[in-house]
């Protein structure tokens, strides 16, 4: 048996042993046995010095060749076993993906807050600014300056909650019945052009039922400039309706009466639930009334020293709860301030 045969034999034995290994941890044992410091191939290389020079060279070459074959085989085997191991671990780690996840606690804004923001955003995008005013008001701002003097028959339109003045003040104080007093407060402080929206709470002396609350929100709007027309009132409110209720909405304007505007307007949109055919939501009319509006009455402009010969404007007001009721199909306005969490969690 020559050294040659011995080297070849080592190769075939080593490859045979390698092929039988199925555990990546046993590879090191194999490496030590064949390629380690006292492994079989290393022994051959160590014994080269004892060989005659010719044989030394031949065996040396042969042994180095076998060494690189074995090293390559080891590398390949290792890769194969690593892949197999990965596969096993993947298969062993399957989860029941239908188990419930761990939800972070989610907070929500009150639906009224959400809708107030939506409404304001639509007008802000048209150059309006958001302003706010006091909820407890003087009669002057809530009525007088809005062309509703004392004993005016139109006062019946707003059932008022009055405040006992803490002192002997002559001026009647009340919980504002609408956000319209801010029309006056804004115009008193600034010069045209004016474009504002006023969100806020308003109050009415009213027995509550499914469609009436004694506290609710309103969003008031006012635009005053040198050339604002009824046509622009229509155009602005139409654009608002498209933004809030969908770009395919149709609008309808009819004559209505509010003492602080002339002409007075009520705007309706075609019913988004039935497309105008008539359903429960629109009381079979095909139309849903969503806001009151009108051209600012010249008396109101005079109250804030705006010259009605120079300036015109329009004002509007709408109820966010009503919009929310329409959008979400809520059938009882009292749900908004009863604060039942089962209601609030739905928005």
């Amino acid at each position: 048996m020559t050294q040659d045969t011995s080297v070849d034999e080592i190769q075939s034995q080593a490859l045979g042993a390698l092929g039988a290994i199925d555990d990546i941890r046993k590879l090191d044992e194999w490496r030590v046995a064949y390629l380690g410091r006292s492994g079989r191939l290393t022994s051959v290389l160590r014994g080269l010095g004892a060989l005659p020079p010719e044989a030394r060279r031949e065996v040396g070459q042969r042994a180095n060749m076998v060494k690189s074959v074995l090293e390559k085989a080891l590398e390949e085997k290792e890769e194969v076993l690593r892949q197999a191991e990965l596969q096993r671990s993947i298969e062993g780690g399957k989860l029941d993906i239908t188990l419930p996840g761990r939800r972070p606690n989610r907070g929500r804004l009150h639906p009224t807050t959400q809708v107030v923001r939506e409404i304001c955003d639509a007008f802000v995008a048209m150059g309006f600014q958001i302003v706010e005013g006091p909820e407890v008001e003087w009669d002057y701002y809530n009525f007088e300056a809005l062309n509703i003097p004392k004993d005016h028959p139109a006062r019946d339109m707003w059932d008022t909650i009055w405040i006992d003045p803490p002192s002997e003040s002559e001026k009647p104080m009340l919980l504002r019945t609408h956000t319209s007093p801010m029309q006056i407060r804004v115009m008193e402080k600034t010069q045209p052009p004016v474009r504002v929206v006023v969100p806020g709470k308003v109050y009415r002396y009213e027995a509550t039922d499914a469609t009436h609350e004694s506290q609710f929100y309103q969003v008031e709007g006012l635009a005053v400039d040198t050339n604002i027309t009824f046509a622009e009132l229509k155009g602005t409110l139409y654009e608002f309706a498209r933004r809030i209720f969908g770009t395919e909405r149709k609008v309808r304007f009819r004559c209505d009466y509010f003492p602080f505007v002339e002409p007075g307007v009520e705007m309706a949109i075609d019913c988004f639930a039935c497309g105008g055919r008539g359903c429960r939501i629109c009381s079979n009319s095909g139309w849903i009334e969503i806001m009151g509006a009108g051209m600012v009455h010249p008396e109101v402009l005079r109250h804030v020293n705006y010259d009605p010969e120079i300036y015109t404007g329009f004002a509007f007001g709408l109820g966010p709860e009503r919009i929310a009721m329409l959008k979400y199909g809520i059938d009882d306005i009292r749900l908004f301030y009863s604060n039942d969490l089962r209601f609030l969690y739905q928005f």
């Binding site: 150059g127 052009p193 474009r195 400039d225 050339n227 604002i228 622009e232 155009g235």
Partner: peptide, 9 residues
Amino acid sequence: MSPLSGSVP
């Protein structure tokens, strides 16, 4: 019916 014209405050 026309869009709102005039200057933005």
